[in-house]
Design a protein around this nucleic acid. Sequence first.
DNA 1: GACTGTATGTAATAAAACTACATATACTAT
DNA 2: ATAGTATATGTAGTTTTATTACATACAGTC
Lengths: 285, 285
Amino acid sequence: MTSGANLLAVIERQRSELNKSESKVADAILRNPEEATRSSIANLATQAGVSEPSVNRFCKKFGASGFPDFKLQLARSLASGVRYVSRAVEFSDDINTFPRKLFDNAISALMTAREDLPLVAIERAVDHIAQARRVFFFGLGTSAAVARDAEHKFFRFNVPVSTHEDAMMLRMLSASGGVGDVFFFISHTGRTRVLVEAAQLAKNTEATVVSLTHEGSPLAAQSHCCINVDVEEDTDQYLPMTSRLVQLVILDVLAAGVTLRRGESFTPYLARIKDSLKETRFPPS
Amino acid sequence: MTSGANLLAVIERQRSELNKSESKVADAILRNPEEATRSSIANLATQAGVSEPSVNRFCKKFGASGFPDFKLQLARSLASGVRYVSRAVEFSDDINTFPRKLFDNAISALMTAREDLPLVAIERAVDHIAQARRVFFFGLGTSAAVARDAEHKFFRFNVPVSTHEDAMMLRMLSASGGVGDVFFFISHTGRTRVLVEAAQLAKNTEATVVSLTHEGSPLAAQSHCCINVDVEEDTDQYLPMTSRLVQLVILDVLAAGVTLRRGESFTPYLARIKDSLKETRFPPS
DNA sequence: GACTGTATGTAATAAAACTACATATACTAT
DNA sequence: ATAGTATATGTAGTTTTATTACATACAGTC
């Protein structure tokens, strides 16, 4: 059976296809996974209302060599932070619970993204940016902040970079694209009309359209190169959170990619930029 | 002894202060932690060249209830991805390695931060923001993008929010503070003169100064309430990365905190804001 | 309604971990 | 230097825990 990264998720998925005693064990574990990692096989058997060998068989079914090994994998699964479902903040939460939940969600989103990185698209995007004459980062709303962050990264590569949020500017700039121009669109949904239309305008020029957005979205359709980030935002949550974090890290990856492309001789240049800030700061005590 | 989040790191740190047999055990574990999680106490004792009770004592010394519990914690520690040191990108890296490294670093930074959240400061900051007449988010460079992100979150709470990057505006606005004004400064180093000076100006008014910055920094010293984020950026890396992610999640936490403070009746209001975007998007296919 | 295969449990066995105690080593004070 | 004391480590027995082999129960099929 699947020896996936996340045991807990695997159990949950298989939950319905288990026979009677197996599902009792599954329930007992899912009810309190943390406790399961700490209890003995006898204890868990009692909790589940089955015999010890049933628990043992259950463990083997899920790829473990036995109960202790199963507990180990379970502990890993728990520690990895990839909780089955990311936990939404409830109004009953207090200061001791909700900050942790939000961090858990963020970590979980990054871990999920890490497992399934669109390396090909990333590599192509790096190519485009590394060779670009100029780069525009376009994003609205939360993605505007991401675009701004990208601007603060990519200007370092000796390429003119800019960010814009004005819908009119977006259209005009997009239409003004030429060979060597990269229009980089950032959007969680990939459905924002303004952006999609701007992407379309840009695509009708000689410029290259790169996007960091949802797979199969209208924006993706208008892109020469689309980096998929399919993080599911918790829809109950009214504030966008996790998706932008993944976007930011992907942009870090792109920046690192361009740095590597520039080669080792480029490092002093980056160092010079960093050093330029020295005098704006109070010296370390 | 310390029951820190990362057992492996704790062992490594204490390595020098252990007695003979203990250090033998530590070595055996550090030599191959992965294997240690799988082996029996007898096996590990042989590997280390000590007796079984010595291993057992070692486990207890590090906060475990016994050997099995120790293995569990070790497994967690390994799975958490919080490897001893976060791995820097090298010029020899290729597309298969460096993106993963960057994600690992990001995750690791969030996990570290999660273990040591400054809950008291967070709670106080939430109080201040929830009761604010208006809020200013000030950050420069990378932190400007973070401030922008914060603006996109906090405007939802019926409080006038703004972000500024112009050094002159920062000073003038800070000096203009009054009762109920919250000046929220964001800075990784906490040493940026412009920000520290603005914070000082704000502190001389009736306004409240909140900062999201490094503990013990000049900026922290000028704050009524300082949320510490002591993420160590990899200094070899010329691009700031991890610290801003932690800052962003902390801001999410603050936003969630304010939402909870507003109470359940506030949700429809948030929903309305979210819904306002519907017509700007292409409908889902 | 008997047959066959699977599912589950019982009880014995084996493995692993722990505890109490014994011995050895290092350190201190005379 | 040496006896005394405290700490460190190991031995052996006990207890807990997990596994295996086997028996029984149940479900589905002819």
